[in-house]
């Protein structure tokens, strides 16, 4: 992939320091400590093996005899690994107990469902009711633990934000709980870490960590929008706010985009809160205008990518479950993109 393109997958897997060695929260820290421990042990053992090899080939006769003796096998081949591996196991388990700390019930809850090949995201209130439906991105408050309920709608996926935690599988018919906490604001990429067929390699998402007060405001605003019915004849979202660069050709109209959205059949797979668009086969588009990525963490979100995705998502993400709309004209694509940009 290229220079300059924001992509959740790239952010999750690349960068310096490598994301796995750059924890942004307490649960990731213990994993990072363990990773360093294993790396150093691994290097030490490799060093010993190389030294032994050298002795075996070029060392003095007396040493070679010792190395070839039965005692060396007992010590080096059985006692040493048994002690070291048991030690590592105990240390690793002790270090990662925090990952399985019991849930207190006071944490914020977010349900994330792996779908082929994107992530459904639902924010829950304390009673477990869904208050905000979203997709392909997770917003978190700073320094506050959040419990993720990981599920799958089809096959096994795995949820992984290297900066924040270890991997956790999303298994059909099960709810796996994963506690995450961020100690630094910013954006962190995530990926599906379990091969799930087709465009699995293009299944990612973006995590954004906000200051606590900003997060509360953000969630309240989204919950309010989601609870709000859209009057018949009105255009959902904020069509008045579609970015109008004075220099830009101003030909695209969110109102016509909304009509096309309904007539073209998008509404059968996509939901826009408060309207008759209530399809659940694809990502919720109520907030797609502010989405941090398109196509599940693979494209930046702006006019060009929006039109390109709708026109031919199959060439960008081959095999994904949204058909390409190559029969739409340029004008129609522009109207639809302007409409989707207004969904905030």
């Amino acid at each position: 992939m290229s220079k300059g393109q924001a992509s959740g997958i790239m952010e999750a897997l690349w960068g310096w320091p490598p994301p796995v060695l750059d924890p942004a929260g307490p649960y990731a820290s213990s994993v990072t400590t363990l990773a360093w421990g294993l790396l150093i042990m691994g290097l030490a053992v490799t060093g010993v093996v190389i030294a032994a090899l050298y002795v075996a080939i070029k060392g003095p006769e007396r040493w070679r005899r010792k190395l070839g003796g039965e005692k060396a096998v007992w010590i080096g081949g059985i006692a040493f690994p048994a002690v070291v591996l048991t030690g590592l196991l105990v240390w690793g388990l002790a270090l990662t107990t925090s990952l399985t700390e019991p849930i207190t019930g006071r944490e914020a809850r977010v349900r994330i469902t792996g779908e082929m090949w994107w992530f459904r995201v639902e924010y829950l209130d304390s009673a477990g009711r869904v208050i905000v439906r979203d997709a392909n991105e997770l917003h978190l408050p700073l320094d506050r633990p959040v419990v993720l309920e990981l599920r799958s709608a089809d096959v096994i996926h795995s949820f992984w934000v290297p900066h924040l935690s270890g991997k956790k599988d999303m298994v059909p018919g099960r709810i796996n709980l994963l506690r995450v906490e961020a100690s630094r604001t910013g954006r962190f990429g995530g990926v599906c870490a379990e091969y799930c067929g087709g465009p699995h390699a293009l299944m990612g998402f973006v995590t954004e960590v906000h200051e606590e007060a900003d997060y509360d405001r953000w969630l309240a605003a989204r919950a309010a929008r989601q609870a709000q019915p859209v009057a018949a004849g009105a255009i959902p979202g904020r069509p008045g706010e579609v970015v109008r660069d004075p220099a830009e050709p101003q030909r695209y109209d969110p109102a016509r985009g909304w009509a096309l959205f309904r007539d073209t059949g998008c509404a059968a797979c996509h939901r826009i809160a408060g309207t008759e668009a209530n399809g659940l086969a694809g990502p919720d588009l109520t907030h797609v205008g502010t989405r941090l990525s398109l196509g599940a963490g693979i494209l930046p979100n702006h006019r060009g990518t929006m039109m390109g995705w709708v026109a031919d998502s199959q060439s960008i993400k081959p095999g994904n479950r949204m058909p390409s709309y190559d029969r739409l004209s340029a004008e129609e694509l522009g109207h639809i993109a302007a409409f989707l940009e207004a969904q905030k």
Binding site: S2, S7, G308, A311, D326
Partner: peptide, 21 residues
Amino acid sequence: ERVSCGSCHVIPGVDWPRGRA
């Protein structure tokens, strides 16, 4: 890259995306 012409075109020097619309 900022407007991602690549989401509809294969363009030399742009590895990703490489769309075909």
